[in-house]
Design a protein around this nucleic acid. Structure first.
Length: 422
RNA sequence: GUGGGUGUAGCUCAGUUGGUUAGAGCGCCGGAUUGUGGAUCCGGAGGUCGCGGGUUCGAAACCCGUCAUCCACCCCA
């Protein structure tokens, strides 16, 4: 019989690691709530065309990374590769634009992309993201970036950098693209093979190439910022001024070109060292055209997403190790009468509200005490045949080794007062 | 999709130019203590050497294939 194993790139989160995940998620929720965002829960799968239209049909995600399958009636469905598309769909479908207060959502959950796994990259991974709809004001960008920064910063992640760039409007990029292409074509032989191909496919990506030769060529290249219209420039200037005002440190990165098609104007990314090759912890930007692209009325929007696995990788170990078992009582019932009395003592404590555990495999007191020790219990309730005959049990403090008799008849209340006094 | 590294006990890893019965540390179980945990000492269990084929008198080791995993490219959170 062969053992069934998990899917490549799909990880289990075992009980040892869930505390640090809860810590991350709770922290993210708390910060998003402080900034006026409300949780939205959207489906894990959607109609395939939603992602094709929003993310961009020619992106890698849509071309080769989606988990797509036919529904029983033949409709093509896809496991969500990111959260923005579904959130926008829900925003349109429920006519949220009609609500007269800002629509600011956050979401968290698993995403799916069929990629080759490596450090910080999985096929099922988890994101936390926020989306802010309807506000074409630089302060909305600032708000979202501030939330991202404060959230990551409070987690104590080391060496974070916020990078920011202005992509302008699509029309600005249409002006810039041929300028860049003609420059790049004059340097084709010095570019890496990838970039030679990118000149045709996605010239802006050349700016983002890691190869040193390519970087030195693009260092001299005409800048996108020089092709931007005045409206785009002044919008970005206001975003930066806002960040300065509230003391969010950033660095301008003219190479920051986001991968998804729907971004315009502000784009940003928070990177960290010690993350392997995938150094982006979170990223986002403005996507004013997306709601309209998906069939809604023209709606400005800005948001970000962070990778929870990547945050977990960066989080200091100190947050994961201590398993606080506080005042859990280990009930050591042994012997014929003792084990029976132990079972009812367990239940009495639990229904009273006192956490209580037992390892039913242990038959001797010695084995029980060893398990109590391993489980980190501060107290053990000793309950053998002798005690049952006397109508008592013995509460042992595992640290001080002091023991007190307690009456079986009023077990929970007596134990509670002993726990409180210790 | 492409490239590289690694697969030996529950875990971390040794294992000589191919040689007889594959080891260590930690962990686990038991005993010293037949009703008192951790520490110590003593003892014990536990291995299809990832899988399949090949070379050889002989393979954990060499060759081919395959799978898993990690890392990198690509791309992205």
């Amino acid at each position: 019989m062969s053992v069934i194993k998990g899917i490549k790139g799909v990880k289990d989160l075992l009980p040892e690691e869930t505390p640090r995940w809860r810590f991350i998620e709770e922290s993210a929720r708390r910060w998003a709530t402080r900034y006026g965002f409300h949780e939205i829960r959207i489906p894990i799968f959607e109609v395939t065309t939603l992602f094709a239209r929003s993310i961009g049909a020619s992106t890698d995600i849509v071309e080769k990374e989606m988990y797509t399958f036919p529904d029983r009636d033949g409709t093509s469905l896809t496991l969500r590769p990111e959260g923005t598309a579904g959130t926008v769909r829900a925003y349109i479908e429920h006519n949220r634009a009609a609500i007269p207060v800002p629509q600011k959502y956050f979401y968290t959950g698993p995403m799916f992309r069929h990629e080759r796994p490596q450090a910080g990259r999985l096929r099922q991974f988890h994101q936390f993201g926020v989306e802010s709809y309807g506000i074409a004001d630089p302060r909305a960008d600032v708000e979202v970036i501030a939330l991202l920064w404060r959230m990551l910063h409070e987690l104590g992640l080391p060496s974070l950098t916020l990078e920011i760039n202005n992509l302008g409007q699509a029309a600005d990029r249409d002006i810039y693209r041929p300028i860049l292409v003609s420059y790049l074509k004059r340097h084709v032989p010095s570019l890496c093979g990838n970039c030679q191909h990118r000149i045709e496919a996605n010239p802006l990506r050349v700016l983002d190439c890691k190869v040193p030769e390519c970087r030195s060529i693009t260092e001299q290249a005409p800048r996108l910022s020089e092709s931007l219209a005045e409206t785009a420039r002044s919008y970005f200037a206001q975003v930066l001024a806002g960040l300065d005002l509230i003391h969010i440190p950033y660095s301008l990165n003219h190479r920051l070109v986001r991968g998804l098609d729907y971004y315009n104007l502000t784009t940003f990314e928070v990177t960290a060292t010690n993350l392997g090759a995938q150094n982006a912890v979170g990223a986002g930007g403005r996507y004013d055209g997306l709601v309209e692209t998906l069939g809604g009325t023209s709606t400005p929007a800005v948001g970000f997403a962070v990778g929870l696995e990547r945050i977990a990788m960066l989080l200091p170990d100190s947050l994961s190790s201590p398993i606080p078992t506080d005042k859990t009582v280990y009930v050591a019932g042994f012997g014929n009468k003792g084990s029976v009395a132990g079972l009812s003592a367990l239940e009495d404590l639990r229904t009273f509200g006192i956490p209580a555990v037992c390892d039913f495999r242990s038959t001797t007191l010695k084995a029980h005490l060893r398990q109590a020790d391993r489980l980190g219990c501060q107290f053990t309730l000793l309950l053998g045949d002798d005690e049952v005959t006397k109508g008592v049990a013995v509460l042992r403090n595992m640290e001080s080794k002091s023991q007190h008799d307690v009456l079986l008849a009023s077990l929970p209340s007596q134990i509670e007062s002993l726990l409180l006094s210790s």
